[in-house]
Amino acid sequence: MQIFFQTLVGGLSLGAVYALVAMGFSLVYRTMGLVNFAHGNVVMIGAYVASTFYLTVTLPFIPAMLIALAVTGAIGLVIERVLRPLENKDFTLMLIGTIGFGIVLEALATLIWGATGRAVRNPVQAAPVELLGLRIRTYDLVVLAVAAAATVALVLFLQRTKRGAAMQAVAMNHEAATAVGIHVGRSNAVAFGIGASLAALAGSLAGPLLYVSPTMGGTLGIHGFAAMAIGGFGSIPGAIVGGLSIGVLGSYSAGHFEGYSELVTFLVFTVAIMIRPTGIFGETTVNRA
């Protein structure tokens, strides 16, 4: 029983990171109907920027993270600006464009930081919390808290602010939104920017949990994408549920199927998608693709 809960706890923190990655995917998807395939690589850039300011410039962890958020937010804006002429013209080219950006970002990271990668030391030195024989890493709690705060902030932004409402409107019907005077391009830019900042948040939190290297975006991107698919394309609650599910699922299949865990995780994922192709919170109205 103790192992059961310990496994659950272990899966949750990585699940929270997947949820943040999935939220970034979802936000762009719901606004533009586009899967940003560079998203995983933006996560990686975020992890590198945060770890550079944390380890090399020796800033505290939180400011380092905020700088990473700003840097990747800007990268998101650039990607959107470059792809904007294709919006509503050639969707396939836009998709390929995001893949291209992903490759460029990975190559850039190799140029700047080298191919080897680096380990990031744990920013929270406090001893693990003991609870009913379970040991919960303090850093896991930080990850969960930051992810929860980011989710609340995002939902508030989407529901309570004018800009957020405009983005929702674009998501529902971009032609009608244009007709009532909403700048669709700007709305898309904001979606891309926030999505990329969420990626940086995921990346900088993942740094001390994992190992920062130019290829880390691949694994995180695929898990985040799977999380979005399982939760429902474009759904924010879906991204959270999906992310945590993929994290916990991975953790349990690692416990039971050991060497075959990845296989089992994605088999379960495939079955889930076959049973419910729209995902848990699938919003078909958002589907513009």
């Binding site: 272990g10 899966g11 953790s251 050991e258 060497g259």
Partner: peptide, 18 residues
């Protein structure tokens, strides 16, 4: 046994700890 790509080892490590 873990996979080469695995990042979270809490299941295996909990069993070892026990």
């Amino acid at each position: 046994v873990v996979t080469t790509e695995q990042k979270d080892f809490s299941a295996a490590l909990s069993k070892i700890r026990a």
